[in-house]
């Protein structure tokens, strides 16, 4: 008897996340189960708004959800380590490294769901209305940050973070509410922001990695074979595979921007790059003190993270 699981995510159905990530993954599950298990995809917040996706899967509103832990500030302190800028050099390998590192922590921090995979875009960059190559140039700017950690990072540098939902980011930039934005390369085109920001700082600045989560009862309710199929599809390798299409899309967008004469893509000098990495240290310290407060060995967790990044060739 065929079993169907419902998966909810919050980007459009035509986004590379669904087309090159979730769909092939779901198809592989269907084939591995011999057509016994299928995944029904609900895109674009059809059954719940983006920040609710963790609770939705925990509460069984859906069986699987594609969640951005960064949308719930302060809720997943360990996971927010991956948000600290200038640590990851590539999105697909980064997803694998994050998965390998986080899967044990997930049992504690996301204890009421089953952690399946990490899905990341290619490392995002800083896109702005004027040319920026140094941290000091952020001072006095309004910046739409990718997540709460990035908000802290830019405010440490004297910028004002402006929080608007991703769909309103274009509006915010067009109306001068924000002067710059940290965003994946592809999203700049997806949201039509390429008409507003003409300067791009070409450093692998950050990732905002989503997690694929299962409702525990839904998973336990499956037949033993089907459950094994799911376990086989919740591996660090799958995290990398699932992210590759999105990463390729972002890379193509970056190439397109370099080729476009209307856009200026600038790689900072090595000295400037060192300044940027240095600027991330206060964010890391803040993270350490935050997690230490909740009884976690911050240094060890950080060491584990770095080690996983190195092992997977994803370190900065």
């Amino acid at each position: 008897q065929a079993e169907t699981l419902r998966l909810s995510h919050w980007v459009p159905a035509t986004h590379p996340v669904q087309v090159t990530g979730i769909e092939p993954w779901a198809k592989s599950i269907e084939e591995a189960s011999g057509g016994d298990l299928s995944i029904q995809i609900f895109p674009a917040q059809q059954i719940g708004s983006a920040p609710d996706h963790y609770d939705m899967v925990r509460d069984g509103i859906v069986d699987i959800s594609w969640t951005n832990p960064g949308y719930n500030a302060g809720r997943f302190p360990i996971y927010s380590l991956i948000e600290i800028p200038f640590h990851i050099s590539g999105g697909a390998a980064g997803a694998k490294a994050i998965h390998s590192w986080y899967q044990d922590y997930a049992k504690k921090e996301m204890s009421d769901v089953f952690f399946c995979a990490v899905n990341s875009h290619e490392t995002g960059a800083l896109h702005s209305k004027k040319k920026i190559t140094q941290p000091s140039e952020l001072s006095g700017l309004n910046i739409r940050p990718a997540h709460a950690t990035m908000a802290r990072f830019v405010s440490n540098l004297g910028a004002a973070p402006v929080q608007v939902p991703a769909p309103e980011a274009r509006e915010a930039i067009a109306r001068g509410i924000a002067d710059a934005i940290t965003f994946p390369w592809g999203s700049i085109y997806d949201f039509g922001i390429d008409k507003e920001v003409k300067y791009h700082m070409d450093l692998p600045m950050y990732v905002s990695a989503q997690v694929l989560l299962f409702n525990k009862d839904s998973l336990n309710g499956l037949s033993e074979q089907n459950r094994q199929v799911i376990y086989d599809h919740c591996t660090p390798d799958w995290s990398q595979k699932m992210s590759q299409g999105w990463v390729d899309d972002d890379r193509a967008a970056r190439e397109q921007m370099i080729a476009d004469e209307g856009h200026t893509v600038t790689r900072p000098s090595e000295e400037e790059e060192a300044l940027w990495r240095e600027a991330a240290i206060p964010s890391l310290d803040k993270w350490k003190s935050d997690v230490a407060a909740s009884g976690i060995d911050a240094d060890k967790t950080y060491e584990d993270y770095l080690q996983s990044l190195q092992e997977n060739n994803a370190d900065y």
């Binding site: 609770d55 719930n72 500030a73 302060g74 809720r75 302190p77 709460a148 908000a151 405010s155 973070p161 929080q163 909740s294």
Partner: peptide, 16 residues
């Protein structure tokens, strides 16, 4: 209850 347990905060000032 679940919000209280989750420690979720606001974006900037980290108010619970």
């Amino acid at each position: 209850l679940s919000t209280h347990a989750s420690g979720e905060t606001t974006f900037d000032l980290r108010i619970p």
